[in-house]
Design a protein around this nucleic acid. Structure first.
Length: 557
RNA sequence: UGACCCAUGGUGUAAUUGGCAACACAGCAGAUUUUGGUUCUGUUAUUUUAGGUUCGAGUCCUAAUGGGUCAACCA
């Protein structure tokens, strides 16, 4: 094998340097730390891939840790969905899922330690006062009058905070760092607050809860996380992250920040996604148009395609917006290899083959997947009356139209070559029936006709085919970046045609036994998957993504 | 009027760490094709600017410009 010069992303470079220097004895442990207060989306998928795949590459593992330090917003309901989504994406964490709340006791001890070292104090100021004393990014803050309390008084007050002697919001514990720091986060950040609320795991055991900065890094440290990979927005937290580790003298996890991934036509703001759901722009968090993992799953995006997409998007530290067509290319590439072919006519028009025996039915052999030699074959019914796609007939066709048009030859996939002989139109000009004759010696597999038509159409037997519902999904927004302008409501870019429902589609009858989640390529149409809304008598298919269509492109120009 | 991060084809990411700027997707042109799909071939297009160090700079230094981030008892 040729020696391949594999290029490393900057995180891998750091890890390889650590490996080379013998840091942590070559151990690599990462973590994925979701807050259980919402659904995972494409941005999380990226973070999941980076954390799990990076660790795996270096023989390490990844912890799943729920960052559940705010009882007001968090709930067990989200925990289960998050675990389901991560597993579906194809990743498995180290042992049981972990929780920051498991460390509340230890975190409390750390706080006591800081107080004893004179590095934390109880502040009785109101939230407004604390905010006012914080200063601004360009002006230094001012010290709280409570900053100089004695260790004994701080200890006493903090223990009483913990014992529930004070009302919510009346006191906080702050780290004693530097009110003049240009980094706002170093200006004596609040590390504990009083919240007499029920926690989804610890119940009513605690009435004080640590803030993110006093929970995340310490949790990393407790678990022995070697590389704590997070997005760029936490970069200003790193000095604090390191400060706590140093002052507490605990295991030195290292925080490394990467740029989060943005994708055209997708938004990831929890607030905005919630608005789409609550105001009925989509059917729910798993609407196939949503950028949530559950939405993409229902849409039919294969997990492997999402993983490939995240890999191909790369990892760096600059702002980025990935083109949606990269995602679609990954989805097509995966589904082309894996999905069974089927013939479904989305917008049917009747076709009668006038020289074909009236009551005859032939069963023709069709390959299930030309990309898969072991994919096998199936039989499909053929007869005198068929349905073809309405847009596959044109009475007055331009020269490069290779489909059904009077006087022209065209191949029916897996079947015969036809010559279009005429058309029957209603009074309004609508096409009712297309007429053709067939060449009996042109049957697929035993074609001796010598005719080479330019076009091949998909079709279904009028007698054998069954009705189904097809949902055509398109981008949720009319512009690639609907949130670029703060002054314009992103909903003004909502794509009203992002869902088109077709109720009269006709599918080859073999499809009737498919189960929700089954994926197909509908010949010449695109990739589809059976939706959970399907019932035995009424199948519903979602269009995952269309086929590349160079004809449509040509027509447009 | 502060601090921090970032700047390479249309998009994204590389460049063996100072030595001929490449890969993927997109685009364009062609070949193949019983899916206007797939596959294959070819092709267009790239280092923000100005200085400096150096035999040599995408890479190092300085500045400018542009973009991003930071003032929740959220994470």
């Amino acid at each position: 094998m040729e020696e391949k010069k594999e290029s490393l992303n900057f995180i891998e470079q750091i890890i390889e340097e650590d490996l080379a220097s013998g840091k942590h004895n070559g151990r690599v442990l990462t973590r994925f730390p979701p807050e259980p207060n919402g659904y995972l989306h494409i941005g999380h998928a990226k973070a999941i891939c980076i954390n799990f795949e990076t660790a795996k590459k270096y023989g390490g593992t990844t912890n799943l840790r729920f960052d559940d330090t705010n009882p007001t917003t968090e709930d067990t309901e989200y925990v289960d969905n998050i675990m389901k989504d991560i597993r579906w994406l194809g990743f498995d964490w180290n042992g049981e899922a972990l929780y920051a709340s498991d460390y509340f006791g230890q975190l409390y001890e750390y706080a006591l330690d800081l107080i004893r070292k004179g590095l934390a104090y109880v502040d009785d100021s109101t939230p407004d006062e604390i905010a006012a004393m914080k200063g601004t990014p360009s002006e230094p803050g001012k010290s709280s009058p409570f900053k100089s309390r004695s260790v004994e008084e701080n200890l006493d007050l903090f223990i009483r905070m913990k014992n529930g002697e004070f009302a919510d919001g009346t006191r906080v514990l702050r780290a004693n760092v530097d009110m003049t720091s240009p980094n706002m986060l170093m200006r004596d950040p609040i590390i504990y607050r009083i919240k007499k609320e029920h926690h989804h795991r610890t119940g009513d055991e605690w009435c004080i809860y640590p803030m993110y900065d006093f929970a995340h890094g310490q949790s990393d440290s407790i678990e022995g996380i070697t590389h704590s990979l997070c997005s760029l927005e936490f970069i200003h937290h790193r000095p604090l992250y390191d400060w706590f580790i140093e002052k507490l003298g605990i295991f030195p996890s290292r925080q490394i920040e990467f740029a989060r991934m943005n994708v055209e036509y997708m938004i990831t703001s929890k607030r905005r996604l919630l608005k789409l759901v609550n105001e009925g722009y989509v059917s729910g968090w798993d609407d196939p148009r949503m950028p949530t993992i559950s939405g993409m799953r229902r849409r039919g995006y294969p997990a492997a395609a999402i993983r490939t997409f995240c890999d191909k998007a790369g990892v760096a530290r600059r702002e980025n917006t990935i083109e949606i067509n990269l995602l679609e290319a990954c989805v097509r590439d995966e589904m082309n290899r894996t999905s069974q072919r089927a013939m479904v006519v989305l917008d049917p028009v009747k076709l009668v083959i006038t020289n074909y025996p009236e009551f005859e039915i032939e069963y023709l052999e069709a390959e299930n997947n030309p990309e898969d030699p072991d994919g096998g074959h199936r039989k499909i019914a053929f007869g005198r009356e068929l349905y073809i796609e309405r847009e596959d007939f044109m009475e007055d066709a331009p020269p490069k139209y290779f489909r059904m048009t009077p006087g022209a030859d065209v191949r029916l996939k897996h079947a015969y070559i036809l010559r279009c002989t005429g058309v029957d139109k209603g009074s309004n000009g609508e096409i009712n029936t297309v007429y053709a004759t067939y060449y009996s010696d042109s049957r697929s597999g035993s074609d001796t006709s010598g005719i080479k038509p330019k076009g091949t159409l998909h079709w279904v037997s009028a007698q054998d085919a069954m009705e189904c519902e097809v949902r055509l999904y398109d981008r949720l927004f009319t512009v690639p970046d609907p949130v670029r302008d703060e002054d314009t409501d992103f909903l003004s870019f909502y794509n009203k045609e992002s869902l088109r429902t077709l109720s009269g589609a006709r599918m080859e009858s073999g499809l009737q036994h498919c189960k929700p989640g089954d994926q197909f390529q509908f010949l010449r149409q695109g990739y589809f998957c059976a939706d959970p809304d399907s019932t035995p008598g009424h199948l519903v298919f979602n269009r995952t993504v269309g086929l590349k269509d160079s004809f449509a492109k040509e027509v447009k120009s």
